[in-house]
Write a protein that binds this DNA or RNA. Sequence first.
DNA 1: CTGAAAGCGCTTACAG
DNA 2: CTGAAAGCGCTTACAG
Lengths: 373, 373
Amino acid sequence: MALFSYMKDFIHVYSNNFCGAKHAFTLRSGPKSGTIGQPFENDPSLTMTSIKDVALHAGVSVATVSRALGNGPVSAALRERVEAAIAATGYHPNLSARRLRSQHTRTVGLVVSDIRNPFFTAVSRAVEEAAYQADMRVILCNTDENPEREALYLRLMQEERVSGMIYAPTSTMSNRLPANGFGFPTVLIDRCPEDCSYDAVVLDNHEAASQLVQHLLAQGYRHIGGLFGNTSTTGAQRHAGFAETLAAAGLPAPTRFIAPRTEAAESATRDWLVSGQHPQALLASNGQILAGMVRALRNLRTQIPHELAVVGFDNEPWTELVGPGLTVIEQPVDEIGQTAMDLLFERMKTPTRPARRIVLQGRCIVRGSSITR
Amino acid sequence: MALFSYMKDFIHVYSNNFCGAKHAFTLRSGPKSGTIGQPFENDPSLTMTSIKDVALHAGVSVATVSRALGNGPVSAALRERVEAAIAATGYHPNLSARRLRSQHTRTVGLVVSDIRNPFFTAVSRAVEEAAYQADMRVILCNTDENPEREALYLRLMQEERVSGMIYAPTSTMSNRLPANGFGFPTVLIDRCPEDCSYDAVVLDNHEAASQLVQHLLAQGYRHIGGLFGNTSTTGAQRHAGFAETLAAAGLPAPTRFIAPRTEAAESATRDWLVSGQHPQALLASNGQILAGMVRALRNLRTQIPHELAVVGFDNEPWTELVGPGLTVIEQPVDEIGQTAMDLLFERMKTPTRPARRIVLQGRCIVRGSSITR
DNA sequence: CTGAAAGCGCTTACAG
DNA sequence: CTGAAAGCGCTTACAG
């Protein structure tokens, strides 16, 4: 409502005043000035009021307007006049100018590897919420597990001069993280090489996978196989927990590494099952793989859990609704996002503090997919 | 790989040169200068190389560096020297400065109402992809159906001076969209008042809901109820298609309007079913509602479709995996995102063109949840 | 408390 | 093709 009248005022002012005198310097912008083939943009300079317009309107200096905007020391009388002028002109501060001048962007970059993965969607929401509370913006970038896009977005982080970055590197970059950091505070999430010198928030992947295997062993399963994502340290760690727990029980750990995508998981599962000698139970190392696995079983008319038990990662809403319900590890997604932001803020305050690695525990939710009786 | 060495060079340069002479003007930034209680940021001016450093290093003017960066007219010799200097100094252009000076941001704002809704996740990906192709950034904002957050983000769009906006308004704002626009090209998606003067890409909601009802009628169902979201024009339109199709068949259309969330749908469904006189078939107006509905049925041990048939919107991967498979309307999410970007570009080119409303058809995917035989 | 002035890092007419 | 200079819209010492 307030916003609406704001807009109307804005439009109003645009079509009347403040558009004549102020542009001694005109741009030659137009269709030809952009990259070839790119659409050109309206010239915002013609439509946007600036702090100068507000100052003129209020009869004060731009410095005073700026102070009124930023809770600086301004007398009540002037502040009032400035506020009236802002309302009258429909002024909106220009963030580019503010960032350039103040040399801080109040922006955190969030670089994730697959926004279709609900794990990252959930973490994103938590990060955004925390940023919102701290009056910061977040730039969300989806690398899609593609190192080229990743390089592009890391460059973007530099160009945007982000205050900090929360980052889930692809496996390619995991081994090549700059030893001295990126030039701004960085917190890794979900994935982190064992030896790395970055702040990080990760799941205890080894333990979580181990829990799933122990649960299956307790249920009497002995032939247990696993499908793991091949693009991250996370998949590798979950595999380690899986394999070591089976080894401790004196059992083999048949494993396939695949792209962490539904389609890849579906065909891998199908191939495995039609190969004849398939396991009694299968573990999926993330939600996408789990979905592909279930789809394959469905198409093959394989009964869960009687013909094949299934366990996996990520407690997505639908895992409760499928078949007898799927046994999964739930990750503390809100805590991961919140903690990552906390680490970022601490790092900003104390740039020299030694790197901290926070390991969070998953929660094993047992459902029908792994219970034969 | 290229990126890695880039980073290393960057760090290297930072700790050596270019940090002495250039700051005649120093900021007093520090812990006290930010908002109270907010963490302060490292002063990037101390760590960042600028175009001036590159020019110095290459022995050319800043204008030449700028031209080399932007494909301007530069001799091959100088271009080479500039590129070497960029590599040596680890220079990254400052986007804030560039945007301020050039008066275009190459940024599109994407304001959605619920990022947990996979429909919006999918559309976001399509928009991002199209933006990426056009060398533009996207700012993704999630209003969470909250008009306050929405107002905040609309203000942010102004402050960021976005080139354009793709926008799914809450029902509150739907009635209050500024008649003259926001001051930049805007395309509505998913939701759009009937009479509105904005460019828009929407589903033929009336027809899609009608299709679902016709399918149920053809299957012999006569007592058909519906759960619809109450926060958007979309829910209302789907309800209209639902109710009118039933009316044409001379049947009543028992309806409940709810918040478009899983939890709300679950409790509404439960209440409806335990009330005794429940329908034979139920329609859900989006994916979240559909999920809540299925969960309620599961908890009540109600068999789909024998005790209750279920149809709904949004062909999310899991709808195929639940029970006998769920009959749904699939939305052309990629096309929606792509088309919205196209409309935005066209609007930028021809600001005065009359508003265009593009109505896309859904696809009805019939699965076991609505087939009794 | 207030204003005049400098300058953040770029891009772009303008004049060679 | 190239450089010197102006200026985008702000914030912030500095001097009253």
